[in-house]
């Protein structure tokens, strides 16, 4: 004999109600994940943390800024920190001291900037690793406004990497900015 809705006790009705709600929500979420379910705007950047991580650790091109990465600044920063072999935090408090930008020490590395005596429009960037066996493929700099830049690093020699960059290289502006966080990945 078929039970009628009238026969349902309150807990049974509540069960039916909650099942209905859950089934509806599940269907809604399933609609989103269906392959090709919804047209994505092109180009679609998403905010996949896996993809951000993959780009960081595999040397793939990074998004130009936090917005393009689709992550919160502090989340991206924490992710970069996790992926990095060495990192230098922002040193905003000392921004008025010129020497701070010229030498910044962080976790596992000291970064120095020194102008070339041969051409003052060029600057040496030296990374000295605390652990001489350490190596990093690239330097990623993250500004408080979310802008990012990266520099490919050569193989270290005796625990140090030295680059020479032109002063009109945007990367140098990042490096000289004490508000910038720097990660070696």
């Amino acid at each position: 004999m078929t039970r009628t809705w009238q026969d349902f006790t309150d807990p049974e009705r509540e069960t039916a109600r909650q099942l209905f709600v859950a089934l509806t929500a599940s269907t809604s979420m399933a609609a989103v994940v269906e392959p090709g379910a919804t047209p994505r705007p092109a180009p679609y950047t998403g905010r996949s943390i896996s993809q951000a991580w993959h780009a960081i650790v595999s040397g793939r091109p990074l998004p130009s800024d936090v917005e393009a990465a689709g992550l919160a600044l502090e989340d991206l920063s924490a992710l970069l920190d996790r992926a990095s072999v060495a990192a230098v935090p922002r040193q905003a408090a000392a921004a008025t001291d010129p020497s701070v930008a010229a030498a910044r020490t962080g976790r596992g590395v000291t970064i120095r900037l020194a102008p070339s005596r041969s051409d003052v429009s060029q600057t040496y960037v030296t990374l000295e690793f605390d652990d001489r066996g350490m190596a990093a493929g690239r330097l990623i700099a993250l500004r408080p406004d979310g802008a990012m830049t990266e520099i490919a690093l050569p193989t270290p020699v005796e625990g140090a990497v030295q680059l020479l960059v032109s002063d009109d290289d945007p990367a140098l502006v990042f490096l000289a900015d004490t508000d910038c966080r720097i990660y070696l990945v």
Binding site: D119, T126, D169
Partner: peptide, 27 residues
């Protein structure tokens, strides 16, 4: 083209024609 003594805290480099391009033999 030119030899310039640099800051002793640095490493010696060979550059290409005044540019920041370091030659592979720099190390």
């Amino acid at each position: 083209r030119r030899i310039t003594p640099e800051d002793p805290s640095l490493r010696s480099v060979i550059c290409l024609a005044g540019t920041p391009t370091l030659l592979p033999v720099s190390a």
